[in-house]
């Protein structure tokens, strides 16, 4: 029973993914995957923590601050097979883009690995 509970919890965690949206696509009830921290001339003007559920008031506040994007947590409805297929397709595309790159150079190698990880998610 305990094992089932753990598995269910792990599956639920695995099935959420981050998504970056232009602000005009943000809506009430969306859950922040990253904190929002709005600075103006090195002064923090507005913050919301990760895990916060956006409210109508929040959206008005963010609009007033000229927010351009939000990072939210969304359910990942894909099957494990689809996740693997999507990751493989994304990896193939990244490798084609980097085909002529000199991956012995530290910055290039690090960028390649980071883009590969980002796009393969």
């Amino acid at each position: 029973m305990t094992r089932n509970d753990d598995s269910t919890g792990a599956a639920a965690e695995r099935k959420m993914r981050r998504q970056y949206l232009p602000f005009h696509e943000a809506a009430i009830g969306m859950v922040l995957a990253e904190p929002i921290r709005i600075m103006d001339r090195h002064v923090v003007r507005f913050t919301l923590p990760a895990g916060h559920e956006l409210t109508d008031v929040n959206l008005r506040q963010l609009a007033a601050h000229g927010t351009e994007y939000v990072c939210i947590a969304v359910p990942d409805e894909r099957s494990d097979e689809q996740v693997a297929a999507d990751a493989a397709a994304a990896a193939a595309r990244v490798m084609a883009i980097f085909e002529g790159a000199d991956l012995s150079r530290p910055a290039m190698a690090a960028l390649f690995e980071r883009v590969l990880a980002y796009r393969s998610r």
Binding site: E68, Y69, C71, I97, G100, A107, A110, L111, R114
Partner: peptide
């Protein structure tokens, strides 16, 4: 396609291409 990326330019900007840069990609 990606051909050349300057190590010195990345170093000057303090870009290490670790997990923190994934939020830059997202933005």
């Amino acid at each position: 396609r990606v051909g050349y990326l300057s190590d010195a330019a990345c170093e000057q900007l303090g870009l290490r291409w670790d997990e923190s840069t994934e939020s830059l990609f997202g933005r």
